[in-house]
């Protein structure tokens, strides 16, 4: 791999990382607004407020960057980067088209999962270093939630890896068949629910519950650092949606997949992202005990059952 190729790959991942989350964010603004009988942003940029998030970004850049005096300075300032950068790595592992992925390594599925689990540390660092009770409680809730929901995510992904007989996302997508959408369905549901919880999206947003904890771990953050946390959340939605799209929905498989494969991957990922937005609008926030119950009583047994089913299926050669 030449230096030029490395540069092109990195630049395209960075471009996708900066554009796709904004696209999801804008979709969230508009879809949520229409589900609630509102119009959403209408002015910024002219046509249906398409530039709303660009304007938001400009606003964040202009704001003052404050580090509280009592805060642990270095950890506080480093936390947004720790939350954001792992998602960049995770995004790089996702193949868009046959043979088109920024990082194509044999263990790319494990790499993506490992990267997203590192990103979770950012929230904990922010929660502890802010020297703020709300932030600490938010960090505490985030930690409890992340420990419980890491397991179902890994188990659901392991089931797919078992079905396809590989740890490489590209190979798994290559071996995908429409039949997977039926017998891997429980795993897909577990993965989407656990991904919502991992990203601390409503209805699993106790760590940032704004009515109780102001903004949880992010309470003390301002300006660009706060924007980085938001960007990390939306980048997380992009990564998880694309993972669901390539692992469970077949990625580039579709009509004219030799030329239009990338489009199918993106469209399937986008559809999953809309479902995640929809879930946010449709359900109220869970309570802490309900959330733990859902993880341990429903998701983990369901994921284990799926793993058993997949194992049986692979051994019997279905």
């Amino acid at each position: 791999m030449s230096l030029l190729e490395v540069a092109v790959r990195s630049a395209s991942v960075l471009a996708a990382f900066l554009v796709l989350p904004l696209l999801v964010g804008q979709t969230e603004h508009k879809v949520m607004a229409h589900m609630q009988g509102r119009l959403g942003p209408m002015y910024a940029g002219g046509f249906h407020g398409w530039a709303q998030l660009v304007a938001d970004g400009v606003k964040f850049v202009q704001k003052e960057d404050i580090t509280p005096r009592a805060a642990d300075r270095w950890v506080f300032r480093l936390a947004p980067a720790v939350a954001l950068i792992p998602y960049l790595v995770a995004l790089a592992t996702i193949p868009l088209h046959p043979g088109v992925a920024a990082i194509d390594v044999p263990g790319s599925l494990v790499l993506a999962l490992a990267a997203t689990s590192v990103g979770a540390l950012g929230t904990l660092m922010a929660g502890w270093a802010s020297a703020n009770k709300y932030a600490l409680l938010g960090g505490l809730r985030a930690a409890a939630q992340l420990v419980s929901y890491e397991l179902p995510i890994v188990l659901a992904a392991a089931s797919i890896a078992l079905a396809g007989g590989s740890l490489s996302v590209a190979t798994l997508t290559d071996r995908w068949s429409p039949w997977w959408m039926v017998w891997q369905l429980p795993g897909a549901i577990v993965f989407i629910v656990a991904a919502c919880a991992e990203l601390q999206r409503p209805p699993f947003d106790m760590p940032v519950a704004d009515a109780e904890l102001v903004m949880g771990a992010w309470t003390e953050y301002t300006g660009l650092r706060f924007a980085f946390f938001l960007l990390a959340e939306y980048a997380g939605i992009v990564v998880m949606s694309l993972l669901v799209a390539v692992l469970w929905l077949g990625g580039w498989h579709g009509p004219f997949e030799d030329t239009l494969g990338w489009l199918w991957t993106l469209l399937k990922g986008f559809a999953v992202a809309v479902v995640i937005i929809w879930v946010r609008v449709a359900w109220p926030r869970l309570r802490e005990d309900q959330l733990q119950r859902l993880a341990w009583v429903w998701l983990v047994p369901l994921a284990l059952g799926q793993l058993l089913l997949t194992g049986a299926g692979v051994v019997m050669g279905w």
């Binding site: 490992a114 689990s117 590192v118 929660g127 502890w128 960090g139 930690a143 420990v147």
Partner: peptide
Amino acid sequence: LVLVLVYVGAVVVLVLFALM
């Protein structure tokens, strides 16, 4: 990768939880 997934993603998160 499993080292990162298990130790950084789960064990250190648990340690931080206990410390908080």
